[in-house]
Amino acid sequence: MTKREYNVWLRVLIVAEKLYVYYGDFPALKDINLSIEPGKLNILLGPNGSGKTTFLKTILGILKPRHGKISVYGFTPWRDHVKIKKITGYVPEDDILYHSLTVKEYLYMIARIRGIPRDMVDEAVERMLDAFQLRGKSDEFIGSLSHGYKRRVLLAEAFIHNPQIYLLDEPFIGIDPRLARALKNVLREKVREGKLIIVTTHILEIAEAIADNIILLYNGEVKAVGKLEEILEEAKAGGLEEAFLELTMSYQSVREIIRALMG
């Protein structure tokens, strides 16, 4: 590695080269070539089933690629997944939590698993209860919480150890506007701190509002990467919705949906 390449490697923390991920015989990600840097709010944009969650799970080492390379902070995720998970805060798409633990018990457990020293656990948990307005629910079983509160618990799980990487899968779904606004501001602050953030969404307004860098995924392939203006220019479109439909060649399917719904 030359000095210049090394400097690039230091700056670029996630590198995917010719990455293929399969579910059985189904290719969920195809020929992904990406470099993702910290200090930017990266938005992974794509319709349902485009491979956004699969990509996050591959970064985290939950899924193993069949071909190609992926490197996170110089680690190979599927081999060094524990090291990567230790420095990552991940919010999954599904609300998978232990229902018979209370919010506080769950956060205590997560804090210890994530290596927060025992004498600092209380402080970390209390901070998360306040930050995500969970104090009133702290002694309730997670199973009894609404979807929105379960999302808050998941966000608390991701933020509790102040990680280096944030992988947030549809974090704005199910939370109220106040928390959504606060989360956007916090993410902006984390970007300034030099954290690496990837947020997935299929809501174009969110992408338009907060993205520094948009990665457009469709059918498991990267269709476009760049700033909002660069994507609009590439698609020769006036807005992100138009660009999205143009780049994913979805005009025909939109017409089909309308025809089917209108009977």
């Binding site: 232990y98 210890r112 698993i113």
Partner: peptide, 28 residues
Amino acid sequence: HQVFFEKIRSHRIVYRRRITLGFKDVLL
């Protein structure tokens, strides 16, 4: 239906990492 609407006093499961995981299993 197994509804847990009642509030309880949460256990402070703050031990060594693996013991904490073990206590999680005990509670579950």
